[in-house]
Design a protein around this nucleic acid. Structure first.
Lengths: 229, 229
DNA sequence: CGGGACCTTGAAACACCTCAAATATGGTGG
DNA sequence: CCACCATATTTGAGGTGTTTCAAGGTCCCG
């Protein structure tokens, strides 16, 4: 049985395994190593040689870029089932840090590229994941360029609803990241993020249980604000 | 002789032809159709089926996304040698409009994908171009999330210096796009863009000949501001 | 030379940021 | 299990940068 069997990716989500036969999954298994990382540790660093690709099995990661002046931009939050390190350049374009304790598999880039030649479906999946990653980046550009603070927060909440497992209750979201992380993702300060949450609560669009647990009350309005169109 | 011979791409820039033999270039030629577009016309529309890929030969294009409320985000300005439409999804993720009269070649996606199997170097080029496109998007996310107005304008000027042909004079830039286009690229209003240019002129970092022709006076300071780090 | 589109500049409004302080949260050891 | 502590979050007040609204100027093309 594949080591990937117990992966907690959201249902219906595209992964590198989508549509692969049991035998093909085993070929991938043969190349893979399972590893763990503690919260706060780095999976990889920007500008280091891109020699591995990864698939997250459990926990949450974030992809980030920092400048010499200490400005930090979070590029994505990464949930189980997501694929990491598909950069087609020689070096990674970003760093990846653990938000929680994580479990993931590691595959050497070269072997992974070769395997794509043997498994056409795998190549298709990688191609489509690449497209999704670009689409995600374009969404973020649109959000940062055109949306107001509270709309950006809605944008994030919608993404988290799609990608994080919804534990039982409908519309409940666990925010494993800090306000600082959210601010660095949305191009805002922690204070503005906090006020945006307060505003959404006042408008009865969300309910804030604790700072790290919110529930969507009005999905329609949330989506409308998230799209801002 | 290849129809691509007279392509005016910037020297040293990666194109899909980089490192291809004459014979391989001819295989690409055989699939290609040359077309023209007038200024203001659309090359392709968001959400339409992605059936072709394109390479720009002459002129300038811009890649954009619009929302129903009329908000528009420019994702990139496209110069000769650039490759368009590499989306790996079924539909285009953006629209592409001409800023000037343009000349470009069109290749059916399916045939282009097949040809990559026959020409390993072509596949490498496409992979790397995909990586560059993602890197460009991440740069833009960082700029929109972390930089002030005048820093974003420097960010754009640096990009244009790299990508647009520098006609004779050193550091001279032709801004073929309007202030509105620039604003929609950088997430600013036209007034803020205008004031940012005025500020850079006052600080003697650039000189503004006409609204659409600027010259870099202090390259070092420009780069510093563009990076904002 | 005239006209329309584009660009610049000014003043006021607004959103977001900065600084500061109070409050809440989560983990730890007693 | 509770009290405590460090850390994270919220809230308030004031400042800054960007937007909005409005007017005037410039450029380009017929």
């Amino acid at each position: 049985v594949s080591q990937f069997t117990h992966s907690k990716s959201a249902p219906g989500q595209l992964t590198i395994f989508s549509g692969l036969s049991e035998q093909e999954v085993q070929q991938l298994d043969a190349l893979s190593t399972t590893r763990h990382l503690e919260a706060g540790a780095y999976l990889l660093h920007q500008h280091t040689p891109a020699r591995q690709v990864f698939m997250l099995e459990e926990g949450v990661l974030m992809m980030e870029r920092s400048s010499a002046t200490g400005k930090r931009q979070i590029m994505a939050f990464i949930y189980p089932g997501n694929f990491i390190g598909f950069t087609h350049n020689e070096y990674y374009e970003f760093s990846v840090q653990s938000l929680t304790r994580t479990r993931f598999t590691e595959i050497p880039s070269g072997a992974f590229i070769d395997l794509q030649e043997k498994i056409p479906q795998l190549k298709l999946n990688v191609r489509q994941i690449g497209g999704n990653v670009l689409a995600h980046a374009l969404d973020q550009v649109f959000a940062l360029g055109q949306k107001k603070a509270h709309e950006r927060v809605c944008f994030l909440l919608r993404q988290l609803l799609e990608r994080s497992p919804d534990p039982g209750g409908e519309g409940k979201i666990e925010l494993v990241m800090t306000r600082q992380d959210i601010g660095d993702y949305l191009g805002l300060t922690i204070e503005t993020v906090s006020r945006a949450f307060a505003r959404l609560k006042k408008e009865k669009i969300i309910d804030i249980h604790s700072a790290h647990t919110v529930r969507i009350l009005d999905m329609e309005q949330l989506s409308e604000m998230a799209l801002a169109e």
